[in-house]
Amino acid sequence: MTKSTPTPVTTPPTTSGAVVRHDENDSRYILTLTGETVGLADYWVSGQNMHFTHTEVDPSRRNQGLAGILIEQALNDARTRTDLTVVPDCPYVAHWIDQHAEYQDLLTRGR
């Protein structure tokens, strides 16, 4: 099977220049900055659930808000592209959703 190029997630321009791409073949969202991969968010789908399992940002790029940009854009994509229930198995994703009430509906939709 040939891997397709990750497709851009529809995102508003960010002041940081960050771009989030969805790599459906590898079940992950990839965050790039000036063409360099600096972060990722892994997920897997089981039935009607989309489990976010791991979020990572390059240690040299931490504390710049990049993980938040990554998760926000990944969740926006999940909201518009699927009707799956988001399961935040990753502690960072769970905390991010707790801090952003407008995304909490993703935890219960489809149930």
Rank of each mutant, 00 (worst) to 15 (best):
V57Y: 00
H22G: 02
A74E: 10
W44A: 12
P12D: 09
V38D: 03
N25I: 15
E36N: 02
N63D: 11
F52K: 00
T55F: 01
R21Q: 12
T7I: 05
P59A: 07
H95E: 15
Y29G: 00
D58M: 02
M1Q: 10
P6A: 03
Q64A: 15
V38W: 00
A67Q: 01
F52R: 01
V87W: 00
T82F: 02
H95F: 13
D105M: 14
T7V: 09
G110S: 14
P6W: 10
D42G: 03
T82L: 05
R61P: 06
L33F: 08
T11V: 13
L70G: 03
P8Q: 10
V45Y: 03
R109G: 08
P13W: 01
G110N: 08
V93K: 00
W96F: 11
D98Y: 10
L107V: 07
L40V: 14
Y43V: 08
R62D: 06
H95I: 12
T15P: 04
R28F: 07
E56V: 09
W96P: 04
I30E: 08
T53C: 12
D83H: 15
L40P: 02
R81F: 09
P13E: 12
N25C: 09
L107W: 09
C90S: 04
R61Q: 13
H54Y: 14
N76F: 13
A18D: 01
D89L: 07
W96H: 05
Q48C: 09
G35P: 05
G39P: 02
G39E: 07
Q104W: 02
A41D: 14
T5Q: 12
T11H: 02
